[in-house]
Nucleic acid binder design. Structure first.
Lengths: 195, 195, 195, 195
DNA sequence: GATGAATGAGTTTTCATTCAT
DNA sequence: GATGAATGAAAACTCATTCAT
């Protein structure tokens, strides 16, 4: 019996998305060719176009899934908690764990610049914003001194986290969880104190 | 007598570097072709190879100049000051002003991933590290509570700053200087409070 | 009860032929893909192969219908008339009206080069000749001076008519009927006079 | 000594144009790939882009040369003659000889539809019109009965000639010259008779 | 130092066609 | 009769790089 090919219904679309996510995560959008992806799933490169009209569209699909998954992870982490700083911390832990370990899709969202795929750039920005809105809310809820620039606080935190894949090495002293906590901690005292 | 040719010093190498820096800053390494750069300087694309053996080398030259310039800017900003937090703040102001406004070269250092140019990747990392070492020293000098993770503090600050080009819009409310100060302020209060 | 399916006779073959004719007329053989045609009928592109073994065969079917329809139109126009010049004129009017207005299929015959579909090229030539034979007969019947080159006369007339789609604009001063009459008129005096 | 390669100055641009003209003439625009042309001149297919930015541009260059050459041929044929019908005849002879025998470039003008190369379609139409304007003048000069539709006369003649490549076979009874003369003769007698 | 032509391997994408379901 | 996924070959075009002049 040769490798099962149920042909219909078990299309290789999910495998394709996975491969694309893995490769985009590792090498960026321009660093990966449609052939690379096809090879990874064992298909002819033209076959990718059964599922996606263009490479940009494929990226969009990966990006979308990334945003969905990381949003879900963050929301799950938020459940139950009510202390604003704890909530922010939980969100950051989920975020960092997603992009540093678990989730190729999430990392693509963080790594690929929307501008790399001109034709869908604004769509990607939308998607990213829809996710980052979550953090805006979390930051909004923080008991900080009046006149604190909450935007900058959010941007600082997200910027710091999103560059972590650049220097983070699995197995190092600090886990993603540790890192997230310390990032939040570094800001928290400041604002508690001020208050 | 045709337009004077200084024979030696009017080589178009500087113009080439400038053009490369400008384009890499705007579109990234893979987003710019040798032809793009040549066109920008009004040369044949083959002529670039009089000055650089490969595209990777050209990037390296730009990167090097970026590191030199931003280092110089930061060092200049440091002159005279002796309060550790003030010094850090001054460095951050210089850094952010470089990458948000003045300096295409510096922005290339921040935007282009060393991995994009495989053959010189480690050289670029070295260069970048040589610059970031400056910040390591500044952070080292900070009077913070014992057990503070100074590495993470540095990475947080640099990560936050280096993603600023993503969201910074010239003419907005906050200037690069403001942003830098607030970033540092956020951390300082925190750690002072902690102490 | 879902939309009634006549099971047998509502096959989409006629719609497919229509769509193919329309598209081939507008964009030529190579300018139209099987997918284009399928999309136009709302089918999957693979489904076209239920009806036609190859794209060339589909063209052949369109071509055949084109020849049948234009032949029928011309024959109908001929009915009753007996004056040779009148008959030729009637044929030309029918021909031009078919290819300029009514009949996508007929236009395909005129527009598509048999050579475009190598595998059926000679079949298409046959079909076209079978139609043009009609004109040969009409020209044969003309009372023209001996030594008139009737072939050339026919080729001139047909060539002139078949290029009309290139410059004809609907709604212009001259109708297809006008044009046909003038074409014939332009030749007729000549030969009458000669006789 | 290997096949001489003066490298500079004897670029293969002319050979490329010739090959393109030959192939476009034989198989039409869409029937010829850039590879086909490159192979014919013994180059890599990418190298064609040293000389032409796109396939459409290559066609435009061929088309332009075709129009220039056939214009020149017709103008040369016109020299000296002053009788309007003789002049038209001479032009037709030159035109037909060009497209039936001598001139691949000229045949491309006659064979390729401007619409096949969307991006330059209107340029091609312009070029073609600039040539056909010559015939408009020639027809304008004809002493024909008032109310003769000179446009239609021109279109008939040109249409008839331009379809000749479809049926003309070299070595047949009638030469291009014969054919041209008879075409003109057919119209001339007619209109003379009319007068 | 500079050029214009050329290369060869690569890019994304298209397309007629196949076939198990 | 119809489908959706897949194929393999080919399309136009790009690009870093080379090299004789």
């Amino acid at each position: 019996m040769p490798a099962r090919r149920t042909t219909h219904s078990d299309s290789r679309l999910p495998a394709t998305l996975d491969a694309a996510a893995r490769l985009f995560r590792a090498r960026g959008y321009e660093g990966v060719s449609m052939r690379d992806i096809a090879r990874e799933v064992g298909m002819a490169s033209g076959s990718l176009y059964c599922h996606f009209e263009t490479k940009d569209d494929l990226l969009t699909a990966v990006y979308l899934k990334g945003v969905e998954q990381i949003s879900a992870a963050v929301r799950a982490a938020l459940e139950g908690g009510s202390d604003p700083w704890r909530r922010l911390e939980a969100a950051c832990v989920a975020h960092l764990e997603s992009i540093l370990r678990d989730d190729d899709y999430a990392q693509v969202v963080v790594r690929v610049r929307p501008g790399d795929a001109a034709s869908v750039g604004s769509r990607l920005v939308e998607l990213r914003n829809s996710y980052e809105g979550l953090f805006a809310q979390l930051v909004e809820a923080l008991p900080v001194p009046p006149r604190t620039d909450r935007s900058l606080l959010r941007l600082m935190l997200i910027g710091a986290m999103n560059t972590a894949p650049t220097w983070y090495r699995e197995g190092g002293r600090a886990t993603p969880r540790d890192i997230a906590r310390r990032f939040v901690g570094l800001l928290r005292n400041s604002l508690d104190a001020d208050a």
